[in-house]
Computed example of a mutant assay.
Amino acid sequence: MNPKPRLAYIAQFAHPGSYQKANWVRVLGGDDETIAFRALLEASGLADRFEYIGVRAHEGEEISLDYDMAVLGGSFASVHDGHEWQREIQKWLTAWRVTEKPLLGICGGHQQMAVVLGGRVSRRPEGPVVGSLPVTRTEAGQRHFLFEGFTDESPFFFGNFDHVDTPPRGAATLATRPGLPHAALDHGGNWVSVQFHPETTCDRMATCWLEIDQEQSRRYSFIPQCQGMVENFLRHGLRVLAAA
């Protein structure tokens, strides 16, 4: 009997000590996103398809190449902050790229992947993008597996100060928003990434803004089936592994 593929959720939530843990006590999993992602797997009915590994990279936990698929989450920290744990993530990304194993990057993960591959991330001069907002799919995005089951009216959770202003060479832009010219990218080699959060919930996003700007917390509304994009990635990844 073949072992289940090993799926890692790599959290880079925030630099330790840079936020108030007490704000997260009423949210599923608290500030531990690896617990919240496990709940997504269970809700999607895909939990039994994988051996799940949660990695809190921002707390110094080691990231391995011994996974079959991975999701790299978002972060309060800017990709330019230069924390040691961020450098370790970038080293891992460089090594993971060679394996051609499936990877989904989300928000800060999207930006980390772009930088490692030679793209550029900068601060948005217009300020942060916040709320439950739709994207405009490009022609490539309209036929891409990530967006299966979604339309141009489908909203996603946004909460970002930085953005990818120059994508890596060879990357295909899948979706845009005003002031976000590269809201979703296919990097080839089984790497895809999105600036928004399809993996999370409105309460988690609202909680993120408690210490930054409480008024912004009001801009999130419930999005049913938002996690369908993560499910699309996981099912596609299973097909990739089966064909390897």
Score class of each variant (00 low, 15 high):
1 M>F: 13
2 N>F: 08
3 P>G: 08
4 K>A: 13
5 P>M: 04
6 R>N: 05
8 A>M: 02
9 Y>H: 13
12 Q>V: 15
14 A>Q: 09
17 G>N: 11
17 G>Y: 10
19 Y>V: 15
20 Q>A: 14
20 Q>H: 09
22 A>I: 10
23 N>L: 13
23 N>E: 13
23 N>S: 08
25 V>I: 15
28 L>Y: 14
32 D>T: 09
32 D>R: 14
33 E>L: 12
35 I>C: 05
36 A>N: 01
36 A>E: 00
37 F>G: 00
39 A>M: 09
39 A>V: 09
39 A>F: 09
41 L>Q: 06
45 G>K: 07
45 G>W: 04
46 L>Y: 06
47 A>Y: 00
50 F>D: 06
51 E>V: 04
52 Y>V: 03
53 I>S: 03
53 I>H: 10
53 I>F: 07
54 G>F: 00
54 G>R: 00
55 V>K: 04
57 A>N: 13
59 E>M: 10
60 G>R: 10
61 E>Q: 15
62 E>Y: 10
65 L>G: 07
65 L>A: 09
66 D>R: 15
67 Y>W: 15
68 D>P: 01
71 V>S: 00
71 V>Q: 00
72 L>Q: 05
73 G>F: 09
80 H>V: 02
82 G>S: 07
84 E>T: 12
84 E>Y: 03
85 W>T: 13
85 W>P: 07
92 W>N: 07
92 W>I: 06
92 W>G: 07
94 T>G: 12
94 T>E: 14
99 T>A: 06
101 K>A: 03
103 L>S: 08
106 I>R: 01
107 C>Q: 06
108 G>A: 11
108 G>M: 07
109 G>I: 03
112 Q>C: 06
114 A>C: 13
115 V>Y: 09
116 V>S: 10
116 V>G: 06
121 V>C: 10
122 S>T: 15
126 E>R: 12
131 G>I: 08
131 G>L: 05
135 V>R: 04
137 R>C: 03
137 R>Y: 10
140 A>F: 04
141 G>M: 02
146 L>I: 12
147 F>L: 13
152 D>Q: 03
154 S>G: 07
156 F>D: 00
160 N>W: 05
160 N>Y: 06
161 F>L: 12
163 H>W: 14
164 V>Y: 11
164 V>G: 07
165 D>K: 07
166 T>Q: 15
170 G>I: 13
173 T>E: 06
173 T>W: 06
176 T>L: 03
176 T>S: 08
177 R>T: 05
178 P>T: 13
183 A>Q: 08
184 A>R: 04
186 D>V: 14
186 D>P: 14
187 H>W: 12
188 G>L: 07
190 N>T: 11
191 W>G: 06
191 W>C: 08
192 V>D: 01
195 Q>D: 02
195 Q>M: 02
197 H>F: 02
198 P>G: 02
199 E>H: 04
200 T>Y: 01
202 C>V: 02
203 D>S: 14
203 D>F: 00
207 T>A: 00
207 T>D: 00
207 T>C: 00
211 E>L: 05
212 I>N: 04
216 Q>L: 11
218 R>V: 05
218 R>G: 10
219 R>I: 02
219 R>K: 15
220 Y>Q: 08
221 S>T: 13
222 F>G: 02
224 P>W: 05
224 P>Q: 04
228 G>D: 14
229 M>N: 05
229 M>K: 02
230 V>C: 13
230 V>G: 01
231 E>S: 11
238 L>W: 02
241 L>E: 05
241 L>R: 13
